[in-house]
Every structure is written in C-alpha cells, then in structure tokens.
Design a protein around this nucleic acid. Sequence first.
DNA 1: TCCTCGTCGATACACTGTATTGAACGATAC
DNA 2: GTATCGTTCAATACAGTGTATCGACGAGGA
Lengths: 228, 228
Amino acid sequence: MESVWERPEPAGRTALTPLSRAAIVAAAIALADSGGLDAVSLRKVGAALDAGPMRLYGYVATKEELLDLMVDEVHSEIDVPADTDWRIALHGWADRTRAAALRHEWFADLLGGRPAIGPHALAVNEATLAAAVTRFPAIDDARRALSTLRAYVNGAIRTEIGELRATRATGLDKLRWQTTHGPYLMRVLADGRHPHIERLVSDGTDDDPATVFATGLGIVLTGLAALP
Amino acid sequence: MESVWERPEPAGRTALTPLSRAAIVAAAIALADSGGLDAVSLRKVGAALDAGPMRLYGYVATKEELLDLMVDEVHSEIDVPADTDWRIALHGWADRTRAAALRHEWFADLLGGRPAIGPHALAVNEATLAAAVTRFPAIDDARRALSTLRAYVNGAIRTEIGELRATRATGLDKLRWQTTHGPYLMRVLADGRHPHIERLVSDGTDDDPATVFATGLGIVLTGLAALP
DNA sequence: TCCTCGTCGATACACTGTATTGAACGATAC
DNA sequence: GTATCGTTCAATACAGTGTATCGACGAGGA
C-alpha cells in the first residue's frame, strides 16, 4: 500500500452539492438551449453540477430517460388557454407549443419521436382533449381531430426549426444560403425539368415563419370544422 | 464549403474494390434498414464494402452528408402519380411517402429535420408542386398549400413510426405496453384530474395506423379544398 | 528511369454512454 | 466505543464514435 502522502485527502461528503432530478434536467436543458442536443452529454451535465458522469445514474437510468424528462419539462411551459371556443383554445395551444420550440430548438428534434406520456405532457393532452370534445363529443372523433392537428403542429415546427438552422449554419442570412446552394440549384433548374420550382424561385415571395405557421394552422382547423 | 450535390465524386482508378457514392449510400441504407440509424457508422459502412472508415471521406465530406444522400435516395422511391385531380395526385404522394417510411423507418428520423434539396427530393417537389398549381394557380398559394400538407404528412409519419417502435420495444404487442406503463398511467389518472384521457382509455377504440393516416390526410385536404 | 502527385490505410485524438469496482461515509448493532 | 453493513459516490475501464494527420504506395508525366 502506498504512503499516506500519495493518497488524496478524503473528500468530505458535506461539501457535495445536493442533486436532484430537477437540477439535472435543468442543467441539461441549459446545455441544450445553448449548444443543441449534441452539447448534452452525461459528462457535461455532471460537470455543470460539480459531479462525475456516474453520479447521474442514481437519478436517471439512461440518457434516453434524461431526454424524456427534458421533453416533459418543456411541456410544463405549454399551457392551454381555457376558452369555450375550441378553435381559440387549440390555436393557443399550437402557438405556445411553437413558442416553446423556438425557446428550446432541440425540442423540435425530440417532438413526436416517441410518445410523450410524462405528467406535464399528459396535462397538456388532457387540456387539448377537453377543448376538442366541445366540438367533437364522441371521444374517438376528438382523438382523431387532435392527432391530426398534432401531426401538423409537430411537422410544421420541425421544418421551421430545420430551416432556421440551415440558414443560420450557412452564415446568418439567406443571401449566404443562396450563394452556397445557389450554383447547384441553378444548374439543376437549368435543365428545364423543374418549371414549377423555377417559377417559385423567380416569382414567389417569402412569408415570415409565423405567418406560414398560422396559415397552415388555419387550413387544418378549417378541415376540422368541416367535419360532420 | 459547397454542397454534396455540387461536388462530383472522385474518379479513383485503382485495382481495389471499386467504390462509389451509390455503393456507399446503398450499404448505409441496408445497415439503417436492419439496425436503425445507430447502426450506421462510418466504420460499419466501410466494413460492409471491405474498406476502412477513412476511405469513405473521399466520396463524402462528413457523416451528415451521407445522411443527406440517404434521404435523397429514399426520395427516389417516391413517385407522384400524374393525375388531373390534384387531390388524387397529392393523396398518392402522401401514401407513397408513408410507405417509404415504413420500408425505411430511419427515414422518419431524418424527415423534415433539414431542408431536402437533393435531386430526387427536388423531383418529388416539382411533381407535387405541379399537382398543387392545378388547384392553386398562384404559385405562392400552391407553396402554402404544399407546405401545410407536407407538415402534416411528416408529422403523422413521425408519430406513427414512433409509436410503432414504442410498442415493439416493449415486447411486440400492446398488452405488454400496457403492463409496462400501465401502473404509472393508472396512478396518474387515478387522481381524477384527467377525466378526458380516462374516458379515452376506457371508452376509446383504436383505428389501425393506415386509417389514422388517411383520416388526417382527408381532413387536411378538405381544409385545402375549402380555400378561396 | 525518376519524380510528382493523388489516393489509401494505419494510427491517433478527443469524445461518447455505461459496466465494474472499490473506497468512503452514515446509520445501526453490540 | 467499536464493528459491521448497506448506500452512495468517484475512478477506472471498455467498446465505440467522427474525423485529423501522416506515411506509404501506385499511377502518370518527364
């Protein structure tokens, strides 16, 4: 056995930061907010809490579980407005979900990827279901309406965040994006086999993202309203 | 850096096993089909082609690029039926996209995550746009209609695949799923604060996935048809 | 024949998630 | 007070990842 001098002084337990799932999830969300999901590793989350990676396994069984907890935590930021008009309530839910995704872009990467059954997600679900049944009294009809709306919202958010990242990655503005992919696009379009896309590129105008989202949302809600 | 689509693949002339982007992408897709995206690593793809991982970097600049190529390749399996009725054409596109995602489940993980501008994706885009303009002559209206429809299709596919995986992961049937998450769900629902979800669990019936998809699709198409 | 140059493979690096293991601690039993 | 026990934590280890670097090799040009 080596000498005492070689051996480090025992680390006093009292100096340890108390840990909790809430603290771990908060640290992970902070990391993801600023660096994306790639910035979330058990080592980094641990380091943010002055702990080693293995310490976290007392609170979380696997990294997937941590991601599930993060997703559920964001659901707690989404409150569904209570309104007698189902359209207003569901529209409000959609807008707040989008807003949450803009605050936590990584949310879009996880959304819909696996069923969300955490307590906060269930609360959101309950509230949207309550709004839906005011229009569709049969519970199965309400479920169908909601899953359709949710599919749209998830998809729209995902592509919006995707485009946001694409333009940002190529240099913070759309001009840079065009110079990056421009030559390729021009060459492909030059063969004349994409007349409609050509027309879109030359004659189309761009809506801002919020308008795009709202337009699509209106279309889906109209489809729902038209149901028997 | 310029895009993959712009850069020609190298014409390496050695007596080694001939390699090509097509071969690399095919190998990667085969791996992803049987083992999911986690099974796609440059080492494994290389091994499938009797090559080391570094060899691939002559054909592909980064792994992300390989994923982009895989996504575009799947788009080549999606052909849009040419029909004078825009609803039939777009419905056909949606069904084939879903079918492709069921053949390549990993497709759902990548779909919508970043703009798809590969040649095959552009071809699909052109065809859907062509169908859309027959109903919405103004190109901007066609774009809005399409992006709404695409958001729904992407979102619906993603949740369908997500649920498919969830039920499969917990043991191949829904009964097993209920015994896994059942106790937790029962406990949460027991507090009486989720009356509508309770009603859904007790009184609701399950549609099969194809019906769920078709129902939502019909709703969105109805919303589109109702536009001025 | 020699030289250059592009391509290839081995090695290396900084990371990842997580299994294992052993040590340090608080509480409990005598 | 001392001994023991079970829990909690940190260190180490392992297999795997994407990719940078670099030496070697083989073909094309002089």
